[in-house]
Simulated scan of single mutants.
Amino acid sequence: MPLREARVLAAAALAACTALPCHAQNGGDPASLYQPKLAAQLPPLRVEVIDGIRFRDIETKTIFRLYGIDACASDQIATLGRQPWPCGTMVRAWLVTATLNTWLACAVIRDEPGERVARCATAAHRDLSADMLREGVAVLAPATDGEPVIGDYAAAEQQARKAYRGLWSSAFQMPWDWRAARKAATNVAVQAEATP
């Protein structure tokens, strides 16, 4: 069904619900209506990729980060045998290929300063994060307290590791360790320049 038709149907359903009280079967008391607490579902969006785990909605310019995963930074390198290869470029290319000229549906997990953390899907990828883990282009992000744990993500990463797929065929530094080392090296360089 084309997006325009889907939006028209959704608007018609909402109008019907507003015209005839949807809570009428509950004795007319809106407080007695059960409504599940679901993650915020956004309208479908088209995006431009920023890096391996982030993209920007081309209409609203809102930045989204994929939930539960991390990936090589843009200029990070992995090594296969003695051959270095740009794992950051590879993961960005994977995400561009998965999202180019495609509608994304995203469920927001939480809002953070400057970005929204979300689980996203396309027609070809039921869960972008899970597929990235399964293909070995991303790794599980370190768990944080209070975050929902998605068992499928750990299983997908394990499958990629066992098959030596993607990153798991190479020597690489975990993205968070690579960024921390890069930041420390930058701080040392800045301090060295500042010291007379």
Rank of each mutant, 00 (worst) to 15 (best):
P43F: 12
R46Q: 15
R46E: 14
V47M: 01
E48Y: 13
V49P: 00
I50Q: 05
D51Q: 06
D51K: 06
D51G: 12
D51M: 05
G52T: 04
I53T: 14
R54E: 10
R54Y: 08
F55H: 01
R56N: 03
I58R: 07
I58K: 07
I63T: 13
F64R: 00
I69E: 04
I69F: 02
I69M: 06
D70W: 00
A71L: 07
A71G: 10
A73E: 11
S74C: 13
S74R: 15
D75V: 08
D75W: 11
D75M: 12
Q76W: 04
T79M: 13
R82H: 15
Q83R: 14
P84K: 02
P84I: 05
P84R: 09
P86E: 03
C87L: 01
G88A: 07
T89L: 12
T89K: 13
M90R: 11
R92F: 05
L95M: 07
T97H: 12
A98R: 04
L100W: 14
L100V: 14
N101R: 11
N101Y: 13
N101L: 09
T102I: 12
W103C: 10
W103N: 11
L104R: 01
C106E: 02
A107K: 10
V108L: 05
V108G: 04
I109P: 09
I109T: 15
I109V: 15
R110Q: 11
R110I: 11
D111K: 11
E112H: 10
G114Q: 10
R116M: 14
A118L: 04
R119D: 08
C120P: 00
A121V: 06
A121P: 08
A124K: 13
H125I: 07
S129P: 05
S129W: 03
A130T: 02
D131H: 14
M132K: 05
E135Y: 11
G136V: 02
G136R: 03
V137E: 07
V139E: 03
L140K: 08
L140D: 10
A141Q: 04
P142H: 09
A143R: 13
T144E: 15
T144C: 14
G146R: 06
E147S: 08
V149L: 13
Y153M: 00
A155E: 12
A155Q: 15
A156Y: 01
